[in-house]
Amino acid sequence: MFKHLVDGIFWDIALWVFTIGVLWRILSIFLVGNKKDLSVARTTGMTGAIAANISRFFPRSEMQSRTRLHVIAGYMFHLGLFALLFFAAPHILFVESQTGLSWPAMPYWAFIVTAQLAFVGLLLLWIHRVMDPVTRLISSADDHVGSILTFIVMLTGCMALLEGFEGLRVLHRFTVELLMVYFPFSRLMHAFMFIPSRAFTGAWFGRRGVKA
């Protein structure tokens, strides 16, 4: 019964909430609009917008000693999660069953390594969030729910690794559905919104001749 719901109507709902939610959220941000900048630019904002979208992947050297943990754990988690999401064999099979699209999966050992990177990164980030007075002050329930939900999704995914029990697969899919429904209303939206944010900042500084 639960299995049919998770594989059926729950999945449909989650997919719709995720898609419509994300689009609606982005639309509602862009409908407000920005005032046109009337100043005379040194260089076009477009260059700055693109440059910032690339340069912000690399932390400034001046910040290295103070943000080592943020950066290392952040990259471990994000790269690990990406690899798991897009290159885990069961995920590719699932996408193929839904859309017919397929691409090469990473080998099993690589899956294990990336999963471990992602877990270590996420745990370090979340514990640091709770321990550092700065992040403790600025974090809200949203941040903790997002972190814990992601952790649970990853954990159930790993628990279902043997692919021997239908129940574990269903549990994993159910937690994914929860995450998808939560996503558009939360800070998880940064996964999309970091691109325009970097672009706005890059363009603003770029017009002034500063590489941001």
Binding site: R25, S28, I29, F30, V32, G33, N34, K35, M63, R66, T67, H70, G74, R129, D132, V134, T135, I138, S139, S140, D143, R187, M189, H190, M193, F194, P196, S197, F200
Partner: peptide
């Protein structure tokens, strides 16, 4: 004061605290 840029910023911030270190 609310504009697309500010809303985009608030929707992107992940409360990482790196700004404090700067």
């Amino acid at each position: 004061q609310m504009d697309t840029r500010a809303m985009s910023y608030f929707s992107s911030c992940v409360r990482c605290g790196i700004c404090a270190e700067a």
